[in-house]
Simulated assay, not measured.
Amino acid sequence: MEQFLMVAAAHFLALLSPGPDFFLVARSAMSAGWRVATGACLGIALANGAFILTAFAGLSALRPDSALFIVIQLAGCAYLLYIGSLFIRHAGSSSLAATDHSHPPSVQTSWWQGLGMGLVSGILNPKNALFYVSLASMVANASLGWKLFYGLWMFTVVLAWDVLVAMAIGNLRIRRQFSRSLPWLERVSGAVLIALALAVIIHLLWR
Rank of each mutant, 00 (worst) to 15 (best):
F23Q: 11
I123N: 06
I194M: 15
L53K: 07
R176C: 11
M138K: 01
V158G: 02
A47M: 04
S85M: 15
S181H: 15
T54A: 04
A199E: 10
Y132V: 03
V165I: 15
A55E: 08
D162V: 05
L115I: 15
C41L: 02
L196S: 10
A32F: 14
S94N: 10
A29W: 07
Y132S: 04
A75H: 13
M154G: 02
A32L: 11
I169H: 06
I83A: 09
A97M: 14
L193M: 06
A55L: 06
L13Y: 03
I202Y: 12
R207Y: 14
R180A: 14
V107K: 15
S28E: 13
N48S: 06
S94K: 13
A78F: 12
I44W: 00
R176P: 10
D21F: 03
V25R: 07
P183R: 12
I169W: 11
S60W: 15
A98V: 08
L42K: 04
V120E: 06
R176N: 11
L185Q: 12
G118C: 06
M1R: 12
A166M: 06
L86P: 07
I70Y: 14
Q113S: 13
T109G: 11
L46H: 04
A32M: 14
S121C: 08
R180V: 15
L148D: 01
V71Q: 04
L62C: 14
V120M: 08
M1D: 05
A32E: 13
R35M: 13
C77K: 09
L135C: 04
I174Q: 08
V133P: 00
S95A: 09
A129N: 03
S66Q: 10
R180G: 12
A9I: 11
R207K: 15
N141P: 05
L135V: 03
A57S: 09
A26I: 14
R176F: 15
L86G: 11
P104N: 03
A10F: 11
W206E: 15
W146C: 01
I194Y: 05
V139G: 02
A32R: 15
L24G: 09
L185E: 09
G118E: 05
I70D: 14
V163D: 04
L159W: 03
L204G: 02
L164Q: 08
S181M: 13
Q113I: 14
S179G: 13
A195M: 05
A9T: 14
A45M: 00
W153I: 00
T99N: 09
S17Y: 11
G116T: 03
F4C: 02
S179T: 12
N141W: 00
F51H: 01
L193N: 07
P20H: 03
A8L: 04
V158K: 02
P64L: 00
L62P: 10
M154K: 00
L148I: 05
A8R: 00
L119V: 03
L204F: 14
G92F: 09
G39S: 07
L62Y: 13
G116Y: 04
V7E: 00
R187A: 08
N125A: 03
